[in-house]
Design a protein around this nucleic acid. Structure first.
Lengths: 82, 82
DNA sequence: TGCAAATATCTAAAATTATCGATATGAGTG
DNA sequence: CACTCATATCGATAATTTTAGATATTTGCA
């Protein structure tokens, strides 16, 4: 939940990436891990699971994995609750 | 989640109560328990927790506890996810 | 008042989840 | 192609959740 909130406003919650300046594909895993203060393996598993279940969209840029919210899926889920 | 879905349409998912004919206050705990096929204590705990956290509204009618969805809270939660 | 029905609470076990350290894999770079 | 950084996977353990049986409480009714 916390990660999903952070990713709603990447610019406000994360520093700009050293090589990729925009947030078009979201935030790289390392920054999320640092902010979450959980181990690398834990965050990697989280992000991977969240991507598998459709909540996040992952994009590889070289050695970095970027994650952003999958708004379409989130909207559908929110509607389903009603 | 399943219970929340059932309670979206009480008339379609539960029999009418023997003494109280309408579904204004939702469904009595026993019917939910029977449909869920879980023990009485389990369902009682579920419903109580769901009520405590605001998802359900409980109404006592004599010896029966009725439960219905708290649509306001559900709507707020759905919005929060977006 | 005493019994029965409906629900609530307590305690404990089995199952699942959260989390990490160690290790493996993938990718860029001199 | 060796080295390093970023991420992924594996295996294990601690913590939490799920669930039930036993028991307690509440309420209506004979």
């Amino acid at each position: 939940m916390q990660i999903m909130e952070w990713l709603r406003e990447p610019e406000k919650n994360f520093p700009p990436h050293k090589t990729i300046k925009h947030f078009n594909d979201g935030v790289c895993a390392t920054y999320i891990q640092e902010k979450a203060e959980l181990s690398q393996s834990t965050i990697s598993t989280y992000l991977s699971n969240m991507e598998k279940c459709g909540l996040l969209i992952m994009t590889r840029h070289g050695k970095w994995s970027y994650f952003k919210r999958n708004e379409a899926v989130i909207t559908d889920f929110a509607k389903y609750l009603l």
